[in-house]
Design a protein around this nucleic acid. Sequence first.
RNA 1: GUGAGCGUAGCUCAGCUGGUGGUAGCACCGGGUUGUGGCCUCGGCGGUCGUGGGUUCAAGUCCCAUCGCUCACCCCA
Length: 426
Amino acid sequence: MTMQALKGFKDILPDESPTWQWLEAAARSVFHRFGFGEIKVPILEKTELFARSIGEATDIVEKEMYTFTDRNGEQITMRPEGTASVLRAFIEHNLQARQALTRLYTIGPMFRHERPQKGRLRQFHQMSVEAIGSDHPRLDAEIIAMAWQFLEELGLSVSLQINSLGCPSCRPAYREALLAFLAARQDTMCDDCKRRSTTNPLRVLDCKSSHCQEQYQGAPVILDHLCPACADHFSAVKASLDQLAIPYGVNAFMVRGLDYYTRTTFELLTGALGAQSAVGAGGRYDGLVEQLGGPKLPGIGFAMGMERLILLLEQQNQAAIAAPAIDCFVAALGEAAVSRAFPLVHALRAQGLKAAMDLEGRSLKSQMKQADRLQARYTLILGEEELARGEALLRDMASKKQQVLAFGNDPAMIAATVMATMSTAQ
RNA sequence: GUGAGCGUAGCUCAGCUGGUGGUAGCACCGGGUUGUGGCCUCGGCGGUCGUGGGUUCAAGUCCCAUCGCUCACCCCA
């Protein structure tokens, strides 16, 4: 093979970019209605930013980051997620001084060095949303509702699961209870679970092995160990979701892969992504802004995986991925006509039409085929006979009806005639 | 990091137990219609069978290695 893109890195070809543009437009539309503003942040950051926010012991930081030394000897990393960078920018520019609650979103590529598979790439794209400055449970519900609204507008059907991970005052006690429970079962659990019980004990309860699941019946559940404040908060989130008629399931075993999450976490799940199940996920991170050296402000956010959304759109909403049609194809026969058509097409484009022509002097049949393939709504036929009579034929491709247009020497005038005729014909 | 499957035309793929690579489909170009698309029909273009070794009289086919892709585990959007 000749030159190829890196493993897990994909080109987005012209065929697919209309879908991407449509997806981004849909996201912006919803996010703006909910009061979010776009922030664009760099793709490279100091490694320390991610190590401190995501957590030193997480898989992402331990083995998945694209980290290298730049020419000045500084350790830098290609962002594996968006929240850390956005919060860094929030702190750096004192955005909290402008309003009590800051609502930000960012769209762009993320990088994780994993083995690629369906719905998972090394460079992938996320739409990442953050709301900083309030720990009110209604904000949690509002954020989840926005994600839900977005998916509804995309025409996608997914399921929502929520959980609460507690806070620094209730999580340690739960963790202890869980560790004790797991310690008693070390001999009978699978190897993965043994490993997980030291690296990420919460994850053990999520094991797919039915043998493990059986012995975890009766395991301590985080929701039973929440402190009163966290329990009230979670109840209020649920009540607010009910108020908005957002359907959700509570999954006490839901865990997040990043260390910074507190209290509310949620996932948007589907069975249509191969081994991957989440199209989007997020949660509250009340200590993170302070931990990164900023003011003591709570926050909540989520990320949606764009490649995963597009996989779903392909299955659930074909209309979203249709190629755009062109307005007018100009078919010219013979050098004299082609020479007249060339400036005409330019004039049509200048007037705002999507116009095309064949430059190679192919047969009319061939040009009609091209017009058809481009899904042209109209074809303007410009042949020697018409030219001699000072006319052109405008063919409606769907109805096959053709009308004769007067055809003078001024391309702009012709263009105006074509456009006027087309708009009245519609 | 671990495991499995697959690399034949631009794309999707046939190719049985080794015996000269397909009239295959789609796409592309041209003809049937001396100037009219989507259907039909005829023809044309198009291949170092991923790469390198080995076995054999003979390898797309068997063996080894290597590169690549895909899917799954782990983990995650």
